[in-house]
Amino acid sequence: MKLKYSAIRKYVLIGAAVSVMAATAGNTIPGTFCNICPVGFLEVSAASRSIPWKMAAWVFAGLIAVYFFGRFFCGWFCSTSLVRKCSGSRCPSTENIYMRYLPYLVLGLSVVLSFFLKFPVFCLFCPIGLFFGFLFAVFKLFAVQEAGLTLIVFPVVIAAEVILFKRWCSGFCPIGALFSLVSKIPGPKFRPAVNRSTCILGNGGTCSVCKETCPESVKITDGGGDITEKCTSCMECAEKCPTGSIKFRK
């Protein structure tokens, strides 16, 4: 049996979370994703009025990868993606023009508020941070037999953000917004492309499989900016396309 992209993606997502905890058990130090978080970097810079140089190199390397591969982190590593994949939550498509700019507003607000309130503000809500916070709370439970409110509150907040408010990833998340901004810089991009000669739509038929499988509801067959900015390179469209017309390439 051929291993499907969606299955590989699930293993990678689970593997990322497991490896962080395995590293903790073994006292090695990859840290959680917060180490390379560009939004956290901006927030800490704003809150402390100084640049954490130790972090800068990793953040920069991450952003270079984002420049080529877009929001690949969202699709392949983000713990929120894991939660969404396990709960089957999909982002509904939106025609609302204002909703498109909400993530950028959140990004701006979190940096500005961090500056004035003097602590990284978005980190309080960040479902990625809360996810690992929950794992570490479990670790704490076993290490010192001390249970905290964290064990109940964090999963509830994550569920509210990601499962109830389905639009979190494309309609709120400032990390995704920052990745979208970096993706906008023109240059070589690794994104899905539709082969019009084999696509059912190109031959006069009706089909919307790719749009329906896309977790971000990107209209892949329409082409354009949405693919560059919103595609998380999860490759589910390429896997599900009945005619195999979608390929990922430069």
Binding site: V20, A23, T24, N27, T28, I29, P30, G31, T32, C34, N35, C37, G40, F41, E43, V44, A47, S48, P52, M55, K118, F119, P120, C123, G129, F132, G133, F136, F139
Partner: peptide, 12 residues
């Protein structure tokens, strides 16, 4: 202000 809540110190 500076702590990014990354849990690295806890891990190590």
């Amino acid at each position: 202000e500076k702590c990014i809540r990354c849990q690295r110190c806890i891990q190590v």
